[in-house]
Design a protein around this nucleic acid. Structure first.
Length: 655
RNA sequence: GGGCCCAUAGCUCAGCUGGAUAGAGCGUCGGACUACGAAUCCGAAGGCCGCAGGUUCGAAUCCUGCUGGGCCCGCCA
């Protein structure tokens, strides 16, 4: 990377300053080069003289720091054996403004051709074993929009880390243990007895109705599971299954139901999104192989466990809390970490509030006996505000305990970097889990993403027929298409709430950011096509011809394209995929500007062979970088845009 | 009551881990095609970077305290 080469030059100039006694020996902040906003400030601005002004003063015995003098000393010692620099200026309080020769950029552009689809990758991560755990939706129902955002952020962060040279594993933690999955099983049985009567499925006659419990999952999809369950067995076995008490078949029901949901709902949706997981990790296997007791043993050795009587949590507005809990439950919120609720209409919250007022006897948990000591993890020592129980009064492990065991497992599998992607509503879980991982000697990074507001032409968007309160992810995908959905989910920083306008996402015009970028790519392709068809020209890097790239806009584009690998690396480090989105938008905007400005005077394809060859290569390079960036985001880069004919509704699909 | 996140142009948001005169899109107003894709571009107007302190060569960025908004605060998962 060009920046690193220049930084190295400055660094050795600083060494020379040390040798001359102008700076103290030893550690110093690394050389930082910024891309200046002003073109007049050159290609890179270096602040070393400002950063080191005090050390300089101390070493030279000067009364007052004099950054410009230091800058001067650096410039005098700056060696440039390759002749990369055309101008070095001291500016302002003591910046070094460095300008490269056009030839330096021309030569560097060759790397885009050399690396092709890999341009943008680096080995910044040094092959470090890294896990990104994301979605981890409960296998109890369809994914909703909040899961979608988590899925796209997680997948793209994983890609970013991969591009930045980490050895990445994408993992889905399946919460197939605990109370919720049995509620699904019970719902499936109950619905099956309904269907057996209403749909006259063979071999079911005479089965009594099992009533659906108010705590069971109410969604329509449960009937699909029930139907599949009945059809999965021979007709002559159905009546027996329908009449066997739930308690006696809860485990097989659980298994069938969660498997079905994962296969037919979750995996299907992820497929539409083009997301593949490397590992599906079942929570149940942790229980089955006693991983929790094993993890507890480890924690004991580390001295982070204790027996404690837990106090009731601090006072809260009770009415409010009950209302919320009910509302959330209504919409099925006892979900694992992939979730961020879709903004829901106020009326529902109101309804829930009203509901909470009546004594519905809703309580999915038995009263907890107080005053009994429990085995807890001392997470407060690591920044949590409350110690967390490992086992419930009933003796069962808590969800937290399983998660601790799970992360212990991750650590023992050798993941030194662990990233989890959670919805903002799990914010309260972060410090606890970080504390737990820290006590086990690891470090956990958590990306918390905020909720999604679905809009259509600025108005709240509603459509769900199947899942009472939520727009499902699949509905959104069918409405907006995978490309637009992915792009829109990445359009904002994760810690910002996101307004997702479905109407905008479908629009074929430049106010639709996905379209804008894809169109830009297609436009470049159109130029390349024309050159091929009319002149038989193929873009390729040619040292002699490249000298024809002299327009300032052309060099700016080159500089921007060549900064792509660095951008990817820093976006990966910050775990911020939205940076790639902005980069792509800005890059293509710059190209459009250049193109329009010169379309009458300095066209790409002319009779000037060298200019044509050089510009063709530049256009090709723009397309290649856009293509790579879009690939990184999981969005297609079409070579032609579909015409906006009124009947054409579909998504432009291209790999 | 406590914890996490957010506050930047009329609206929606960037701001590269502390750099020089704070940027983009939408919206408003005014312009540019006999086409290598006008599905685009150019220009203008628009700012107390929520408020008040602090840190330093230098703050939208870091620290503290306020104000306003979101999420959360079970032995549930």
């Amino acid at each position: 990377m060009m920046k690193l080469r220049i930084a190295a030059l400055v660094d050795s100039a600083l060494d020379a300053c040390v040798a001359a006694g102008l700076l103290p020996a030893g550690e110093r902040p690394r050389v930082q080069l910024d891309a200046p906003k002003q073109a007049a400030h050159g290609d890179f601005a270096c602040n070393s003289a400002l950063v080191l002004q005090k050390q300089h003063a101390a070493a030279t015995g000067a009364q007052k720091p004099n950054p410009r003098a230091l800058a001067q000393a650096i410039v005098e010692r700056l060696k440039d054996p390759e002749g990369l620099l055309s101008k070095v200026e001291i500016a302002g309080p003591g910046f070094l403004n460095l300008t490269l020769t056009p030839a330096a950029w021309h030569n560097e552009l060759k790397s885009i051709e050399a690396e092709g689809a890999k341009f943008g990758r680096s080995n910044a991560g040094g092959g470090k074993k890294t896990m990104v755990e994301f979605v981890s939706a409960n296998p109890t129902g369809p994914m909703h929009v909040g899961h979608g955002r988590g899925a796209v952020i997680g997948d793209t962060v994983a890609s970013l880390l991969d591009w930045a040279g980490y050895a990445v594993t994408r993992e889905f933690y399946v919460n197939d243990a605990g109370g919720q999955v049995f509620r699904l099983g019970h719902a499936v049985l109950a619905r099956a007895t309904e269907i057996a009567q209403s749909e006259g499925i063979e071999g079911c006659a005479g089965a009594p109705l099992v009533p659906l419990d108010p705590e069971d999952y109410q969604g329509e999809y449960v009937k699909d599971v029930s139907r599949a369950w009945l059809l999965s067995m021979p007709a002559n076995a159905r009546l027996a299954a329908l009449t066997t008490p739930f308690e006696q078949q809860k485990e097989p029901l659980r298994k069938f139901s969660t498997d079905w949901v994962i296969t037919n709902l979750i995996k299907e949706d992820l497929k539409l999104f083009n997301i593949r997981f490397d590992v599906w990790f079942s929570e149940k296997t942790l229980h089955d192989k006693d991983a929790i007791t094993a993890a507890v043993e480890e924690l004991k050795k580390k001295g982070v466990l204790a027996h404690e009587v837990l106090e009731k949590p601090a006072d809260q507005k009770k009415a409010d809390k009950t209302a919320k809990a009910t509302a959330a439950h209504e919409a099925k919120s006892a979900d694992a970490k992939g979730e961020a609720k879709v903004a829901e209409a106020k009326p529902d919250a109101k309804a829930a509030e009203a509901k909470a007022a009546e004594p519905t006897g809703h309580g999915d948990d038995e009263p907890v006996p107080e005053g009994k000591p429990l085995l807890v993890m001392k997470t407060t020592r690591f920044g949590d505000d409350r110690d967390r129980p490992i086992y419930k009064t009933s003796g069962e492990p808590t969800y937290f305990a399983a998660d601790v065991a799970y992360h212990w497992d991750k650590l023992s599998r050798g993941y030194s970097r662990m990233v989890n992607v959670w919805g903002a509503d799990h914010g309260g879980y972060v410090s606890r889990m970080k504390a737990a991982v820290k006590s086990m000697g690891g470090e956990l990074e958590v990306i918390l993403f905020q909720l999604v507001n679905l809009l259509k032409d600025g108005q709240p968007f509603k459509m769900s027929k199947r899942a009472a309160n939520f727009v499902t992810l699949r509905e959104l995908l069918e409405e907006a298409g995978a490309d637009a959905t992915r792009f829109f989910f990445l359009l904002r920083r994760g810690d910002m709430a996101l307004d997702f306008d479905v109407a905008l996402a479908k629009k074929n015009s430049s106010d639709n950011p996905v379209f804008y970028v894809q169109y830009g790519h297609a436009r470049c392709c159109a130029i390349l096509r024309k050159a091929q068809e009319e002149k038989g020209l193929t873009p390729k890097w040619d040292a002699a011809a490249m000298q024809a790239l002299t327009l300032p806009e052309e060099l700016e584009i080159a500089r921007r394209l060549l900064a792509f690998p660095e951008l990817v690396a820093s976006a990966a480090e910050a775990l911020e995929p939205h940076r790639v989105v902005f980069y792509l938008q800005e890059t293509i905007a710059q190209f459009h500007g250049y193109y329009t400005k010169y379309k009458k005077t300095e066209r790409v394809i002319t009779d000037d062979a060298a200019k044509t060859q050089a510009r063709l290569y530049l256009v090709w390079a723009v397309a290649q970088v856009l293509k790579n960036g879009l690939a990184l985001l999981g969005v297609s880069a079409p070579e032609r845009m579909q015409s906006d004919a009124p009947e054409a509704e579909g998504e432009t699909a291209e790999a």
